[in-house]
C-alpha cells in the first residue's frame, strides 16, 4: 500500500500565468492525522499562491513547533523554509524581513505556539508591523503533545477526556487589532470559499496580516463538548458575507446590489470586495471591529471574515528606513562608507 500521491494529474487541469498547475505548488505528503484542519489550510495556501501566480522561490515559510508548525512541509516544496524553536518564529520573521524585503513571508503557527509560549514574540511582531502573513491554525489544543488545553480554548469547552477547562480564552483577533495589526481576519479551515480570498488579500497586503483560522484537531478536539469541532463551528459560524479577491486590472465578477458591498483597496492596487451584511460594518474602523467581535463572542457566535484592515499603514522596513535591496545583494561601495566619512566619524569620537 502506497500513501504517496501519484504524479498523475488531470490532463485538463487549469494553468496560471506562469504555466503552472495547482499541483506544482504542492509539498511533501502530509504526516498530519487524516482530516486535520491544518491540511485544508495548506490546500488553501496552495490555491491562493496558484491564483496569484506566485513564484515559489520568492516565498519563505517560517514556523515554530506544533502540528500546525509542521504544515509548511506540506505546501510550496520549492520555497525557502525555517522551522524555529517553539514560539520563536516571529523573531526569525522579523530578522528575515529586515534582511530581505523581497520575499513573501508566510508564518505558520498554532494557538499553543502563538498564544502561550510565543505570545510575547507575537505581540512585538505585530507592534513592529513586520510585513508578513501570520497564520494561526487555531484548534484550541496542543495537538502535537497529545491534547492539553491551549490558551485559546473556550472556558466551557472540555477536553477529550471530559476534564474542565479552568481559564478563559485569549482572543487573538482583538488582541492583534489592539496591538496595531493592519490586516486581521478570522476564518474556518472548512470554508474554502471564504478562506482563499482572505489569504490572497493578506498576501497582497503590506504590513502585518493575521489570519486566525479555526482548524479542528480531529484527534484531540473534535468531540461533542468541544467548541472547536467541525460540527460546533459549522453551527456557530457567523460568516460576514462573501469576500471576493479582485486582482489588479480585473473587474468585479459578482454582482451585488448598489450599496451592498464595501471595497478595500490593497497596496498593489488589487481589491477585496466584501458583501455587506446587516452588521452595517466598516472594516477600516478599529473600534467598530472590536465592538463587533466582543458582541458576537457574547452571543456565542464565531464571527468570521475580514475583521479589520488599515491599508495606509507603514511596514517595518519603511519605519526603519531600511535599504530597498536585500542586504546580501549590497555591494562593497554601498556597505563601506569610504575613508573620508570614516575620518569624520573618527574625529567625532575623539
Amino acid at each position: 500500500m502506497s500513501y504517496f500521491k501519484p504524479i498523475n494529474k488531470h490532463p485538463n487541469l487549469e494553468k496560471n500565468k506562469l504555466g503552472l498547475t495547482r499541483r506544482d505548488y504542492e509539498g511533501g505528503v502530509s504526516t498530519l492525522c487524516a482530516g486535520c484542519g491544518h491540511d485544508s489550510i495548506s490546500a488553501c495556501i496552495i490555491e491562493a499562491c496558484f491564483r496569484l501566480n506566485i513564484e515559489a522561490y520568492k516565498v519563505a515559510k517560517l514556523s515554530g513547533i506544533g502540528c500546525s508548525s509542521k504544515a509548511p512541509a506540506y505546501f510550496l516544496n520549492a520555497s525557502h523554509g525555517f522551522n524555529s524553536v517553539h514560539g520563536r518564529m516571529p523573531s526569525i520573521a522579523t530578522g528575515a524581513n529586515c534582511a530581505n524585503e523581497d520575499l513573501l513571508y508566510l508564518g505558520v503557527s498554532g494557538d499553543g505556539d502563538s498564544a502561550s509560549i510565543g505570545i510575547g514574540q507575537f505581540i512585538h511582531a505585530i507592534r513592529r508591523q513586520v510585513n508578513m502573513v501570520y497564520f494561526v491554525e487555531n484548534n484550541g489544543t496542543y495537538g502535537l503533545t497529545k491534547g492539553q488545553f491551549s490558551a485559546t480554548n473556550d472556558l466551557e469547552s472540555k477536553n477529550k477526556y471530559g476534564e474542565d477547562n479552568l481559564f478563559p480564552p485569549i482572543d487573538l483577533t482583538s488582541m492583534a487589532i489592539q496591538m496595531g495589526a493592519s490586516y486581521v481576519a478570522r476564518s474556518f479551515s472548512g470554508d474554502r470559499d471564504q478562506l482563499v480570498p482572505l489569504i490572497m488579500g493578506a498576501i497582497q497586503h503590506k504590513g502585518f496580516a493575521l489570519l486566525d483560522i479555526i482548524s479542528p484537531c480531529v484527534t484531540f478536539n473534535n468531540h461533542d463538548s468541544s467548541t472547536k469541532s467541525y460540527d460546533y463551528i459549522r453551527n456557530h459560524n457567523e460568516a460576514m458575507g462573501k469576500t471576493d479577491f479582485v486582482p489588479l486590472g480585473e473587474e468585479i465578477k459578482t454582482n451585488y446590489d448598489e450599496g451592498s458591498s464595501v471595497e478595500v483597496k490593497l497596496h498593489d492596487g488589487s481589491r477585496l470586495s466584501l458583501e455587506k451584511t446587516d452588521h452595517n460594518f466598516d472594516p477600516t474602523d478599529a473600534g467598530n471591529s472590536l465592538d463587533l467581535i466582543r458582541k458576537k463572542n457574547k452571543e456565542g457566535k464565531i464571527i468570521t471574515g475580514l475583521l479589520y484592515v488599515d491599508n495606509k499603514c507603514k511596514p517595518l522596513t519603511e519605519i526603519m528606513d531600511l535599504p530597498d535591496k536585500p542586504l546580501n545583494t549590497l555591494e562593497q561601495d554601498e556597505l563601506c562608507p569610504g575613508s573620508e566619512i570614516l575620518e569624520v566619524i573618527n574625529n567625532d569620537l575623539s
Binding site: R23, G35, D39, S40, G190, Y230
Partner: peptide, 15 residues
C-alpha cells in the same frame, strides 16, 4: 462525512 476536504486535497486527479 465531516466535510474536512481531506479527500479533495489528496486526490491526484482532482476527481
Amino acid at each position: 462525512c465531516i466535510e474536512c476536504d481531506a479527500c479533495v486535497d489528496i486526490c491526484p486527479t482532482d476527481c
